[in-house]
Each structure stands twice: as C-alpha cells, then as structure tokens.
C-alpha cells in the first residue's frame, strides 16, 4: 500500500542550518496494517507523515502509494490526497464553518457530491464518532476531544484508503484522550490502513500491528508491539522506553 524507499528530507532553519529530518528512510506498509510510529521529538515522525501526502516535498528517494509514485511530476497530488485522510494535532477544523459544513465542504468541492448526498454521508460519520448532536455548532463551541472527532469524521468523508494521525491526542486534555482513541481503535478494527504518530503507548500496545521507533530521521527498531515493549534490542529504544513508561 505504502512503500517508502531511501527517502531523504532536509529542512533549512531560519538561521540557515540544515536539519536532517529523514535519512535514507525506507519502510513498507501493507493494506490494513496499523503502524504506530514513536520516537523523541525531532526524530522525523511527523515529517514522514507529511511527506506521504506531499505537505512536504522530499529531497530524494521514492514514495509509492497504491502503485503510484506520488512525487512524479505527472501525478495529480489532489487525487492522491483524496485517498489519504490526515488528522492533525491541532485539529485544524474550519472555524468559520459549522460542524456539518466542516464535514460536507470537501465532499461537495472535491468529490462533487450534491448537498443532500454529502449531508447524508456526513451525518453517518458524525454519528459514528458520536457527535451528531453538535452538527449545527461551530468548532469553537466544542471541546478538544469533540473537535478532534469531527476532524476524523471530516477526513473519513472522502472514503480514504489510508488514515494518518499526526499526534492526534497530544493537544487534548487527559480526560478527552480516551474518546478520540476509541474512534481510532474502531477504525483499526474495521481494517483501515493507519499510520499513527503518537505518544499513547497503550494505543500502540492494544491495536498496532507494528511499532516503529524512529530517531534522527531513521528507523532504529521496529516490530510487533509485544516485541517492542517487552524485548527491545537497541539501547536507544530501551532508553526511550525507560523515559516514557
């Protein structure tokens, strides 16, 4: 489903230093797989996600999604993005639109669905994430957890093949993390291909097929959750786990 081969990505900081975000990064993600990426901040986790839908352009290497090299000049990136849902740390709901409008807009503009059709799809998904009763409210009237669930519903309206979560619970108050993780777990059980950057080790343990530990733009260690949490091999992984667990 997703194949990253020898991907390099470098950022220039405002003071012209170069920061290597991804260094010769390669991985394969199969259809239906739930991959959790963990690692210290600045390790390139989010950068990898953002390269998958070209919010960031890679310097070299190949990213192939569903058989299409997404960095190909001829590729219509908007078509690819329709297939990859993304959920952000800060939700990024559209503050000037109601909940329902947030969830119908892209359907009408991008998928060219009629308003009725879009509303029907939207209501179905708002119900799924348990927030249908707020459909006429504005994002600012919702709690963080509710906003993030709307954001997940918004991404799902495009019927993506892949869902990416970029620290989706990091900005939430502790008591709201659970409601968002529950929605993510439901998706995982339904067989969605998911790439999840998170600090929620419980989620990684419970639903992930594979845990990837990144540091300094590279994969240090990867494996099943069980292997990863009980029997890590690398010292760097052990150190990280000892700091967070």
């Amino acid at each position: 489903m997703i194949k990253a081969q020898n991907v390099y990505k470098t950022f220039k900081t405002p003071d012209r230093r170069e920061v290597k975000a991804l260094v010769d990064f390669s991985t394969d993600i199969k259809k239906g797989e739930v991959v959790v990426i963990i690692g210290p901040s600045g390790s390139g986790k989010s950068t990898f996600l953002r390269c998958l839908n070209r919010l960031e352009e890679i310097d070299s290497g190949d990213i192939i999604i569903d058989g299409v090299n997404i960095n190909d000049k001829k590729v219509n990136i908007n078509k690819i993005r329709e297939e990859i849902g993304m959920v952000f740390q800060l939700f990024n709901l559209f503050p000037h639109k109601t909940v329902l409008e947030n969830v119908t807009l892209a359907q009408m503009v991008v998928r060219k669905r009629s308003k009725n059709e879009a509303t029907e799809v939207a209501r179905g998904l708002l119900k799924k994430v348990g927030i249908l009763e707020k459909e006429n409210g504005y994002p600012s009237q919702l709690s963080g957890g509710q906003q993030q669930r709307v954001a997940i519903a918004r991404a799902l309206t495009m019927h993506p093949k892949i869902m990416m979560f970029d620290e989706a619970t990091s900005a939430l108050d502790p008591e709201m993390i659970g409601e968002v993780l529950d929605v993510m777990k439901t998706l995982a059980r339904e067989g969605m291909t998911m790439v999840v950057v998170t600090h929620e080790m419980g989620f990684a343990r419970e639903v992930s097929d594979r845990v990837v530990f990144m540091d300094e733009g590279q994969i240090v260690e990867e494996g099943t959750a069980e292997h990863f949490f009980t029997d890590p091999v690398h010292d760097r992984t052990k150190l990280f786990l000892s700091q967070i667990l």
Binding site: N78, G85, N92, A106, V109, V110, R111, A151, M158
Partner: peptide
C-alpha cells in the same frame, strides 16, 4: 494544510 490534505486545490 487541512484543506489540501482533503484533496482541495
């Protein structure tokens, strides 16, 4: 970013 990631131009 949210708009673009939904496939909007």
């Amino acid at each position: 970013e949210a708009s673009r990631s939904l496939g909007m131009g």
